[in-house]
Design a protein around this nucleic acid. Structure first.
Length: 163
DNA sequence: GCCAACGTTGGC
DNA sequence: GCCAACGTTGGC
């Protein structure tokens, strides 16, 4: 069976790490560290594959929304911040031989010519099933279906290469 | 800045 | 193994 490309949405508070920060990063890539939720970890460790598409979402900003498109370039690896006692995300129970937390590396592909706000997403009935708009959903990494991916990119006027 | 929703922790 | 307390997320 041919490998099916998967799609994801990743949230970041722009004060902590923004789309602009990603574009300024070496090779426009960053290791997605600091996630301390087991469901999100499992997705990064086990499910996200090289080449998968990522909607880069700005949270806790006015208005929140999808700002750009990225791609997974390196699959799940232990998050080094869990071992760094000086880091905010240090986890005393994590051991290098038995890591608890994982991240993936993503690379910016292209910004969306039109920002797709959370309100835009809520207003589009085709996106009713997105985890993002489900009540109480807080995961910072979420799956996106191929159909939802297409719709969001169309709303954003995406002109980058096909993922 | 508020607070609802939810995950985690830890006493029992 | 229950569940109250606590911490965090994130829209508003």
């Amino acid at each position: 069976m041919p490998k099916q490309r998967q799609y994801w949405l990743m949230k970041s508070e722009p004060d902590a790490f923004s789309w602009a920060n990603l574009l300024e990063s070496p090779a426009k890539t960053t290791f997605w560290d600091g996630v301390r939720n087991y469901q999100a970890r499992n997705m990064m460790r086990d499910l996200m594959k090289k080449g998968d598409g990522v909607l880069f979402y700005h949270s806790r900003t006015k208005p929140p929304g999808v700002v750009g498109v990225a791609q997974v370039v390196k699959e799940g690896a232990p998050d080094p911040t869990q071992f760094d006692a000086k880091d905010k995300h240090f986890d005393i129970k994590a051991k290098p031989e038995e890591p608890r937390w994982y991240g993936v590396e993503i690379k910016a592909v292209a910004g969306l010519p039109r920002y797709v706000s959370l309100t835009d997403i809520k207003d589009n009935p085709e996106l009713d099933e997105m985890p993002l708009v489900q009540r109480g959903q807080r995961l910072s990494v979420q799956p996106v279906s191929a159909a939802q991916w297409k719709v969001v990119l169309a709303m954003g006027g995406y002109k980058g290469r096909k993922i």
